Computed example of a mutant assay.
Amino acid sequence: MKAPNLLKISIIVLLTCTILAGCKKESTPTATLNERIDASQSKPASNSGDFSNGPYGTVTGTARVFLTGGKYKLVLEGFSTSNGPDLKVYISQEQNPVHFVNLGSLKSTSGNQVYDIPSEANVKDYAYALIYCQQYHHLFGYTQLTF
């Protein structure tokens, strides 16, 4: 084999290995969390909603919006989800996000978790809490929030 062909093959193999090593199927931490808000200084801003599975994952637990210290927070309780890449927590106007606010990366696949809702978001405009794979645009689970 000629040296230029060997070099091309080596580069292709190296690039393929790099790409495959970079694709991580399950990238969300799995340690169980137990985050809480101070109930004595908070009031529910919505009814709790139980998560339903989306087409790409299994999600259980409840979500509720609280007003605490003048700021809104999304609280996930008794929460569990199947793992996946690039999982985010959204509040959304629709079940499949078009008009949404990204609250950040999912902190863990299980446990109680608290997410800050930006002050510029009018929480009453967002009827759903979602667990969403941003990289592949896959809905893992959702719940409706009633204000």
Rank of each mutant, 00 (worst) to 15 (best):
V98I: 06
Y126G: 11
T109G: 02
V101M: 05
D125P: 09
F140K: 05
A127Y: 01
S105D: 00
C133N: 12
Y132I: 03
V101N: 02
Y128P: 01
S108W: 07
P118S: 09
N112K: 06
Q113F: 10
H99V: 03
S119G: 09
G111P: 04
F100M: 00
Q135G: 08
Y136Q: 12
V123F: 14
V123W: 13
K124A: 10
L130V: 05
S110M: 11
D116E: 13
Y128W: 04
V123H: 13
G104E: 07
Q113L: 14
L103N: 02
L103E: 06
L130R: 08
G111M: 04
E120H: 15
N102Q: 04
N112E: 06
D116A: 07
Y136M: 07
F140W: 12
I117T: 10
N102S: 00
V98Q: 03
V114F: 09
G111L: 06
K124E: 06
A127R: 10
A129V: 01
S108H: 01
S119E: 12
Q113K: 11
D125Y: 03
V114E: 09
N122I: 08
F100H: 01
K124D: 05
V98L: 01
E120I: 09
L130W: 03
F140M: 13
D125A: 14
S119T: 14
H99M: 01
Y115F: 15
A129G: 08
A121P: 15
K107P: 01
L106N: 07
G104M: 05
V123M: 15
S119L: 14
G104H: 03
